[in-house]
């Protein structure tokens, strides 16, 4: 009689099936990357692709206004989302009382942030169209786009800020209070510096999602054909910076890389689809870099602070 081992047949077969399933995912991703790299190769190696405006002629069209727009919009989105996200995260971790009316409000804030994280992106576009564009009259501008994407990024930043703060042990706070530090002193000198790595990771992850976001910006009316750049706020005379012109930058119409791709992919001519693939590859490389950076940072933070 043969000895029956615990690790019987299904336990040999299933890991193989599991691994094949995982390989399927990997090959899906590799196919995606290789496909758009090959499709877009012709334009990717053409330097003028990066320095030209969109054009009626596919071989002359480029992504200059796209990447400039993406940079400006993302700068706004990062600014606004940090401005609200970090304080909100700190409040929920450090100041939450869980009692009385404030406690009730805290519960609502928490539930609300969980829910916001799962609201379809296009709904944020409708919010921005209804509020920023039509009610606040900010127009279909870089400012509106930045605000819209910042709302998308906000839940990710709050959640990551909270997680980073939660990792800091109670002893650090008690130690600071014991030598007479106020709550704000403790946060400024201890909590924030120690959680910075985690907050930065969250920021990069949020930004990598926002940079590829198309739907909400289509909704607020991003243009697809922009053959000019926003005015420069810098001047040749003292003080070398004009607030008025900076405002013009914020209020100028814009396009971003994803919108440009969407426009090109919807055109019937194959030549434009080459442009779409090339711009898509650029965008994909950006998100890969950002995600790799976030992954590296997260690992480093984990090793740096072992409490």
């Amino acid at each position: 009689m043969g000895r029956k081992t615990i690790s019987s047949k299904p336990d040999i077969i299933f890991p193989i099936i599991g691994f094949i399933a995982f390989l399927l995912v990997v090959s899906f991703m590799i196919t995606l990357i290789v496909d758009i790299a090959i499709d877009g190769y012709e334009r990717l190696i053409d330097p003028s692709f990066y320095t030209s405006y969109p054009s009626r002629f596919p071989e002359k069209a480029g992504i200059l206004s796209g990447w400039v727009g993406t940079t400006l919009v993302m700068a706004g989105a990062i600014f606004w989302s940090l401005l609200i996200g970090i304080p909100a995260g700190i409040y929920l971790e450090e100041y939450a009382t869980k009692r009385g009316i404030r406690g009730k409000i805290e519960t609502i804030i928490e539930l609300n942030i969980n829910n916001l994280a799962a609201v379809p992106a296009i709904i944020y576009g409708l919010l921005a169209l209804g509020i920023f564009v039509y009610r606040f009259k900010l127009g279909e501008s870089i400012l509106t786009a930045g605000l819209t994407l910042s709302i998308l990024m906000l839940p990710v930043i709050v959640v990551n800020t909270r997680e980073a703060i939660r990792r800091i042990p109670r002893d650090i706070r008690e130690g600071a209070y014991a030598v007479g530090a106020t709550k704000w002193d403790t946060i400024r000198d201890h909590i924030l510096p120690y959680s910075l790595g985690g907050i930065l990771t969250g920021l990069i992850i949020a930004a990598s999602r926002a940079i590829g976001e198309t739907a909400p910006l289509v909704t607020i009316g991003a243009l697809t054909f922009i053959a000019f750049l926003p005015p420069s706020p810098f001047t040749s005379e003292f003080p070398f910076f004009s607030l008025e012109k900076a405002w013009d930058v914020l209020m100028s119409p814009f396009t971003v890389l994803p919108i440009q791709i969407f426009n090109w992919v919807s055109r019937p001519q194959a030549a434009f689809q080459i442009n779409a693939a090339a711009a898509g590859f650029v965008l994909l490389v950006l998100t890969v870099i950002m995600n790799a950076l976030a992954y590296y940072l997260r690992q480093r933070v984990r090793r740096k602070y072992i409490w």
Binding site: V25, M29, L32, I36, I205, S208, R209, I211, G212, E213, T214, A215, P258, I261, F262, V265, G280, L283, L284, T287, M290, N291
Partner: peptide
């Protein structure tokens, strides 16, 4: 997989 821009 979730970070890939959906337009791509």
């Amino acid at each position: 997989l979730e970070a890939v821009p959906t337009v791509v």
